[in-house]
Design a protein around this nucleic acid. Structure first.
Length: 385
DNA sequence: TGCAATGATTGTAC
DNA sequence: GTACAATCATTGCA
């Protein structure tokens, strides 16, 4: 039974004659005998039993009730399943969620059924045993006097014994529910890669805002809508991207160049058509109905510059509006102290926004770097700005 | 099957 | 509350 690369259970070596078969658990690749785990669980249980049994029983009952195992059946813990589905996140996996939702419910109802069957059995057994003992006492009363107190004591002992068995059943059921929940609530298990288009949209935004890749809340919402993902997924994506880009700029160079070139070509196309003169970004990001602003077009400048230098891409093709932006940007960039110092000269696409401390903000906050195309009401980066 | 890529989570700092 | 950094867990490809 494999949970993940580092956790799983498998049989220990084949038992030799007269030896018991044992299970081995692998936690972080270290083998642990299952019997050892059981004994530690039992010791924990032993410690738990030190608290008043009523309180423990109440906790178990409350949990079983909340999970929809005990109490009236009302959709078999659909709230928990919905929570599980919500925790799993969007990612355009609506169908998957509903399938998993029903899977969760099916398994929970299985647990519920087993719990009730066992509970019924215990209750029946308890009643039968009590009756049996009462009959025995009645028979004994023919030979010796039996006080009502003694009968009461015996019944009490039987009930206590059976309620401790019930408690064990409740404990096991709770454990089963917790395992089920953890499997369904762990969103990492359900990770799906975003589709290509979504990744392209995010990358286009990232590389066209490379000097300040902090989308505002509005921009995040817009991106989320376009990519059919949640806003928090957009935030996660940008968080991961910023860190991974910063950690390994060289690795992302090709990608950065590609998106920069695409941005430049798009800008050129827009300008050559003579319309939307101030929308230099990609169709999916800044250029679309003004959803996103080029908070810093220094990135575009870099791409144009590199294309001019290395690929023979001529400035004339770029168009006058882009060229004017480049001029303005050159000025702005000079004011902010430039951005290629200390970096390899072969880099086409420089990490201009990253400062000596490895951060973006200090080097290129919107207050220090302003896009020439931005209006006063333009949307800037996130709350850190 | 191994490994890189990637989305999500967690802990910490501000 | 957000960003960062480290890490986890899964996916997808060679």
């Amino acid at each position: 039974w494999k949970v993940g690369p580092r956790l799983g259970i498998r049989m220990a070596r084949e038992p030799s004659m007269g030896e018991k078969r044992q299970c081995m658990v692998f936690i972080r690749e270290r083998p642990v005998l299952l019997t050892q785990i059981f004994s530690s669980v039992l010791s924990i249980r032993g410690a738990q039993e030190e608290e008043p049994p009523d309180a423990q029983l109440m906790r178990l009952d409350n949990m079983l009730l909340a999970e929809g195992v005990s109490g009236p059946e009302k959709g078999g813990g659909s709230a928990a399943a919905a929570a599980a589905a919500a925790a799993a996140g969007g990612g355009g996996a609506g169908a998957d969620n509903s399938a998993e939702h029903s899977d969760y419910r099916a398994k929970l109802s299985q647990i519920r059924q087993i719990y009730h069957t066992e509970l019924e059995k215990y209750e029946q057994a308890c009643n039968e045993f009590t009756t049996h003992v009462m009959n025995l006492l009645r028979e004994q009363s023919r030979t010796r006097p039996i006080s009502p107190k003694e009968i009461e004591r015996m019944v009490g002992i039987i009930h206590r014994k059976f309620s401790s068995i019930q408690m064990q059943l409740k404990q096991s059921t709770c454990e089963a529910v917790m395992i089920l929940r953890s499997r369904f609530l762990d969103a990492r298990r359900k990770r799906r890669n975003f589709n290509k288009q979504a990744t392209e949209i995010l990358n286009e935004y990232f590389y066209s805002h490379l000097s300040n890749p902090y989308p505002s809340e509005e921009a995040k919402e817009e991106l989320a809508k376009k990519c059919s993902i949640t806003v928090s997924q957009v935030s996660n994506w940008f968080g991961n991207k910023r860190i991974r880009y910063k950690k390994n700029i060289g690795k992302f160079q090709e990608e950065a160049n590609m998106y920069a070139a695409r941005t430049a070509v798009n800008a050129a196309n827009v300008s050559s058509h003579g319309s939307q003169a101030n929308s230099p970004a990609t169709p999916n990001s800044a250029g679309s109905a003004g959803s996103f602003n080029m908070s810093n077009s220094g990135d575009l400048f870099m791409s144009v510059q590199s294309l001019n230098g290395d690929s023979g891409y001529q400035g004339a093709q770029v168009g006058a509006n882009v060229q004017s932006q480049v001029d303005t940007l050159r000025h702005v960039i000079n004011q902010t102290g430039g951005y290629s110092e200390g970096l390899a000269g072969t880099q086409m696409y420089s990490p201009q926004g990253i400062n000596a401390n490895g951060g973006w903000q200090d080097a290129a906050t919107p207050s220090s770097v302003t896009s020439p195309t931005e209006g006063p009401g333009s949307v800037h980066s996130d709350t850190s700005n």
